[in-house]
Design a binder for these strands. Sequence first.
DNA 1: ACAGTTTATAATTATATGCTTATATACGCA
DNA 2: TGCGTATATAAGCATATAATTATAAACTGT
Lengths: 115, 115
Amino acid sequence: MNTTVTIDLQRASQLLKLLGDPTRLTMLKLLKSHECCVCEFVEIFKMSQPAISQHLRKLRDIKLVKEERRGQWIFFSINENHENYPFIQSILEHLPEQNESIAELEEQGLRVCCQ
Amino acid sequence: MNTTVTIDLQRASQLLKLLGDPTRLTMLKLLKSHECCVCEFVEIFKMSQPAISQHLRKLRDIKLVKEERRGQWIFFSINENHENYPFIQSILEHLPEQNESIAELEEQGLRVCCQ
DNA sequence: ACAGTTTATAATTATATGCTTATATACGCA
DNA sequence: TGCGTATATAAGCATATAATTATAAACTGT
């Protein structure tokens, strides 16, 4: 008996295409352990704010990430309830932790904390 | 102690981009259990021969598949010795078997066998 | 040597992608 | 209300991608 949950091939290729971009893949890996807001990604990737926003929109459109406004900032987090989260997770597991990026942000005092 | 083998993020996104196409992803899933030659793929995907060849070239360029000429035909197979094969395999595991495609070929007498 | 079959490659084209710049929107604070 | 900050969206543009058609190359069998 085969109990492995499989994922439709069209769907899988759609998800893989989204992950097949270094910026979005790193974003997801980061979001797996830390919430981040847009301005943090701008610092981490040294990329323009609209570019970051557009990547996040793609991830949000297929509901891989959630957003939550807190004051001025919008925090993004990974959507663990996504139908295909196990698939996504099994991919992210193979990637090295991106803690350095976050550590650097903190050193520079650029990490957004707002509780 | 963490013994998980990780894969460089740039490399991972490159591989995922390649898999992020339904034709190539299906090809790899098929090749995981059966060797196939180009003309078989042409039948399975109802796609032109050059289109198939070009997809296979991309998979071959990155060494995910091997080719072997036998007479008129060139058989493609998955390269299990690829450095990142464990990563690829962990993705393909989530996909449904594509046995129907091969079964249909056999029914139509289009399966190439040449031992 | 020649004809038929299989595959690869080159050139072209249409569409997709990812960035840029410009602008709009939403919020916090004085 | 007005200003500064954070984010989203729209438009434009350069490059990448995936198909097509045309052609070349490698092999088989006569």
